[in-house]
Amino acid sequence: MRDMRYADALHAALLDEMRRDDSVVVFGEDVGVYGGVFKVTRGLQAEFGDSRVRDTPIAEQAIAGMAIGAAMVGLKPVAEIMYVDFLPLTLDQLINQASIMHYVWAGQVTLPFVLRTQGGAGTGGGAQHSKSLEAIVAHVPGLKVVMPATPADAKGLLTAAIRDPNPVIFIEHKALYNTRGPVPDGEHVVPIGPAAIARPGTDATIVANSRMVLESLEAAGELAAEGISAEVIDARTPRPLDTATILASVQKTNRAVVVNEGWRTGGLGAEISALIAEEAFDFLDAPVARLGGLDRPIPYSEPLEAEVLPDAARIAAAVRKLL
């Protein structure tokens, strides 16, 4: 085990996979000479050259399309979209092209590419640099959506994403890049699909992902001091979603709080709440509680931004209300 920053764990995954497999290429805005605006791709162009690591023009539709085309002919592109807020520019390529090809072309092609991006609020990025848009892509069959919360998952899931024969939208969180945690030495692959039990508990289940896992763990810590045992599930791959782990937990605890940073209406939390209501209704001792971002653009000013986001205090309060 090695203590690593989340951003360094991502960098390590890219470095290892590019060394292992010549077909892995990296392109996107500012990823080459500069090494990415969050420095995740630093040094890659120096080691692997400017054919495999390319700075692109500011052209998100082309970046997404090139990932599809290059994957189709045998490369394993890891393309970067600087902010998830720019993902809407790629949606035609993702939704009308990448997501349909394996199925509609009856398995004639596979598309082993990763679209790395980062989202989330908490750093004063304002309404066009702070959103959480995973629900938009997680809605689409044929796309995998991955959101690591810890450095270990950052490395292990990115490695799995690069090796996966399907399009993977890999959404990092800008406020997690400087967080630290243990990462296993050597090859470390975390399969895409299974959720993680971030903290076991018996009285209530908190289902979260990305930075909200950290807030949920903090809430669980507070609750433990009050004698309440909360289980935290990290639903780290919104698609495919590990429904079995979520349901098994709720069947055990009989209470559920679902937390997402994205907008509450029509968000991932709505999907997970509906899942629990449909499949575990008889086990519930209280209604499912659903926390999400306030349905507003993310405001810039610090007290306003803090107000629109779920946090540990609100999560703990939601759990207390169920008991």
Binding site: A64, I68, G69, M72
Partner: peptide, 17 residues
């Protein structure tokens, strides 16, 4: 126009290879 970005991606693949 949707296939144009994909086509240049295919060509990028051939160039890298």
């Amino acid at each position: 126009g949707g296939a144009l970005p994909i086509a240049i991606g295919q060509a990028l693949g051939f160039q890298v290879q």
